[in-house]
Simulated scan of single mutants.
Amino acid sequence: MVTQSRSVLVTGAAGFIGRYVSRYFLRQGWTVIGIDTSSVKHASLLNLSAYYQIHLPDMALGDLLQKHSPQVCIHCAGSASVNLSVTDPAKDFYANTGVTFELLNTLRLNAPDCRFIFLSSAAVYGNPQSLPVSESHSPLPVSPYGFHKWQCEQLCLEFTNVYGLPTASARIFSAYGPGLRRQVVWDIFQKIITQRSPTLQGTGRESRDFIHAIDIAAALFVIATTGSMQGEVYNIGSGREVTIAELVSLVLDTLCYDCNPEFDGVVPTGVPLYWKADTTKLSTLGFDPTVSLEQGISSFASWCRAELVGV
């Protein structure tokens, strides 16, 4: 696919991954149209050709699609909290499954050739029976968030098989990078910087596959431009398993801090224990991560210091 004079619609453009995606597509020469619930002053307009404050579902989306005729839609909007999905599954359902259905249906009616990529999650796998986990592994979610992401993947397949809408789903593993003020990497950094000897969740033996947001954006671009778009799914991860204890050690080394964080031994409901992605499928499309965990943690440390202590 030729990228010149192409346009992409990014939902959740003011969010963490949405900002990275918008910036990446813009640098590839694409016109980027962003939508989000945030006001204009909170959106990163430098990476956008146009921005609309919309709370999906919204009837205005149909007119917007007809006006801009995007070739690609990257769906970054939606709830992204396992803990909140456990305490309020209804809110998570409507923010993820409900909004995704409305978006797919609006595309069907107004932009049926638009290539749609849904941002799913490794939470679909739950606790995999073996590692690394490939896309062929049976989904075994352990949280409402994981179930709702799986439902959204099925909606993508439905709209491809029934209506011919080109779709794909990207199962993102543990995303991180400057700008993310939640989840495990931020939690460890902010507790160590502000408390020096903090207590962290879990046992430290839990593992994750960390993938930098720069690489996530690049992977989504590869899927958008070379994927078959037949409702298939792709893992987006680094293929490297890292325990939380190992991550803490790397953070301490990066910060040059000498302390001994403790773990409370409690794994919250809905949180998987071990993750490592099989990235073979995406690699065959020509994508491999470029940001090592050591590089990513170093840049994250600089950003965290600026955020938390001002230097």
Rank of each mutant, 00 (worst) to 15 (best):
V2W: 05
V2L: 13
S5V: 07
V8L: 03
L9K: 03
L9D: 03
A13F: 04
G15T: 06
G15I: 06
G15E: 04
I17P: 05
I17C: 08
I17A: 11
R19A: 11
R19W: 08
V21D: 02
Y24L: 00
G29A: 14
W30F: 11
G34F: 00
G34W: 04
I35E: 03
D36N: 04
S38Y: 04
S38C: 12
S39Y: 02
V40C: 12
H42K: 15
A43I: 04
L45D: 05
A50W: 06
Y51A: 06
Y51Q: 02
Y51S: 03
Y52C: 12
Q53G: 05
D63T: 12
L65V: 12
Q66K: 14
S69N: 14
P70T: 04
P70F: 12
P70M: 09
P70W: 06
Q71E: 15
G78L: 10
S79K: 01
A80C: 13
S81M: 09
L84E: 10
V86W: 04
D88T: 01
P89H: 09
K91A: 09
D92C: 14
Y94K: 08
T100I: 07
L103P: 00
L104S: 05
L104N: 09
L107C: 14
R108M: 10
L109Y: 10
N110D: 13
C114P: 11
R115H: 11
I117V: 15
I117S: 09
F118A: 02
S121F: 07
S121P: 14
V124G: 02
Q129L: 13
Q129R: 11
P132S: 08
V133I: 14
E135M: 05
H137T: 11
V142S: 02
F147M: 11
K149E: 09
K149H: 07
E153T: 08
Q154N: 13
L157Q: 14
F159D: 06
V162R: 15
Y163A: 01
A168E: 02
A168N: 03
S169D: 00
S169W: 01
I172F: 04
I172A: 00
S174P: 05
S174C: 12
Y176P: 06
P178A: 15
R182A: 12
Q183E: 15
W186H: 14
W186M: 01
I188E: 04
Q190C: 15
I192R: 02
I192M: 07
T194D: 15
T199S: 14
G202V: 08
T203A: 11
G204P: 10
G204I: 07
R205G: 15
I211H: 03
D215L: 00
A217G: 00
A218D: 05
F221K: 02
V222Q: 02
I223A: 00
T225M: 03
S228F: 11
Q230I: 10
V233E: 08
G237F: 02
G237L: 06
S238N: 10
S238M: 05
E241L: 09
V242T: 14
T243P: 01
A245F: 06
E246V: 05
E246L: 04
S249G: 13
S249Q: 13
L252N: 08
D253T: 10
C256D: 13
N260E: 15
F263S: 06
D264G: 01
L273H: 12
K276R: 14
T279N: 04
T284L: 09
L285T: 03
F287S: 02
T290D: 10
V291K: 09
G296T: 00
A301R: 01
S302T: 13
C304F: 04
E307F: 11
L308E: 08
V309A: 08
V309D: 12
G310I: 01
G310N: 12
